[in-house]
């Protein structure tokens, strides 16, 4: 049996339309008009015990709405969710005992309390046996280096310290299912690295099922074997991260700034034109077939280059390409937009 089972999950929001001013407010009170917005549209997936799955998408794709439904905060409009066999909204309190949640941008700790006091409260709320609680505290003191933080009120912590504390608060009752919403947002590289190591070790060793939403492809690459990509409320990819890496990891983009207008260029094999602008041209090349220096020298022979820069494709770009059918026909042709699968 899967730990999380999601079937045809749908969420439609009704957004009240407001007219300005007091008159509008009163009108809205008696004759409200609504506009429907489908945030999550018939999505399906299953997560097994011990899986760490990346749930990614651009802003507004429906990620946090999904997480809110999975945690029981929001009620689905349609479809069903089973988390450990329960309906998380209807059996919210029973479900809450088994899950741990980190909302990256919001604290679940008490602002003015020393961390240890917050943890005491949370442990009691989840009925963690005192002996086990002590063990967990010792463990976290090591793995999250909380020792020196326990007496510090949350309001005096740095962003990284706060996140370490949030993780301790979310995992102190050893939940079976963990939802991490942007756990590394705003952190610097070293802290990010540490948080990832901790998640990997803690959740891996205890067989927790983890659903991770993030903008950071680094999080995904290091923690997840499987990713689910969502866009405009629909799942557009569900499969191994390897496929994504192979497909998109081998490409690089290179942008040239030129002194004059860009003529039509002849490009080496494995390289293609992405866009041309005013004194600017962007190419994409396959790292297996060619190299950055080959592409650069080929271009420089044809035009005068003032500057150039290299970049890896970002999440928004990947999503766009998958949407345009990149994973269906094997090509990453921009023209493939027409070949997009019928919804």
């Amino acid at each position: 049996m899967s730990v999380i089972e999601v079937e045809n999950l749908t969420k439609v929001f009704k957004i009240p339309q407001k007219d300005p001013g007091l008159g509008g407010a009163i009108k809205g009170l008696f004759a409200p008009r609504f506009q429907s917005k489908t945030a999550v549209d018939r999505i399906n997936f299953r997560l097994d015990r011990g899986e760490i799955v990346g749930y990614i998408g651009v802003n507004g794709a429906g990620k946090s709405t999904t997480i809110k439904m999975l945690t029981g905060v929001l009620m689905p409009t349609g479809g069903s969710i089973r988390v450990l066999g329960r309906d998380p909204h209807r059996q919210r309190i029973d479900n809450a005992r088994e899950i741990g949640v980190v909302f990256g941008q919001r604290t679940q700790l008490w602002w003015d309390l020393a961390l240890i006091e917050s943890l005491n409260l949370i442990a009691r709320m989840y009925d963690v046996p005192p002996a086990r609680y002590k063990q967990m505290l010792d463990e976290f003191s090591q793995t999250l280096d909380l020792g020196s933080l326990l007496k510090v009120p949350v309001r005096n912590m740095s962003l990284g310290q706060k996140m370490r504390s949030e993780l301790a608060a979310a995992l102190i009752h050893e939940p079976k299912v963990v939802y991490l919403d942007e756990p590394t947002i705003g952190l610097d590289l070293i802290v990010k690295e540490r948080i990832r190591d901790f998640i990997k070790a803690e959740c891996g060793s205890k067989g927790m099922t983890v659903m991770l939403t993030t903008h950071d492809l680094g999080d995904i690459e290091q923690l997840c074997r499987r990713v689910i990509i969502i866009d405009e409320g629909r799942v557009i990819y569900d499969g191994p991260i390897e496929t994504i890496k192979k497909k998109f990891g081998k490409f690089r983009e290179i942008t040239f700034e030129t002194t004059g207008l860009v003529p039509s260029l002849s490009l080496p094999p494995g390289c293609e034109l992405l866009s041309t602008g005013d004194r600017k041209v962007t190419l994409r090349f396959d790292r297996i077939q060619t190299t950055a220096s080959q592409v650069a020298s080929a271009v420089m022979k044809q035009i005068e280059v003032r500057d150039f820069s290299l970049s890896e494709p970002d999440l928004a770009n990947i999503v766009k390409q998958i949407y345009n059918g990149a994973l269906d026909n094997g090509g990453v042709e921009p023209e493939a937009a027409d070949a997009r699968p019928a919804p």
């Binding site: 809110k68 945690t71 029981g72 905060v73 919210r92 309190i93 029973d94 809450a96 005992r97 899950i99 949640v101 909302f103 919001r106 679940q108 709320m125 989840y126």
Partner: peptide, 14 residues
Amino acid sequence: RSGGFDRFLVRPID
């Protein structure tokens, strides 16, 4: 308004 209410809903108490 701040979204902090969600915190109450993921906890096993009323």
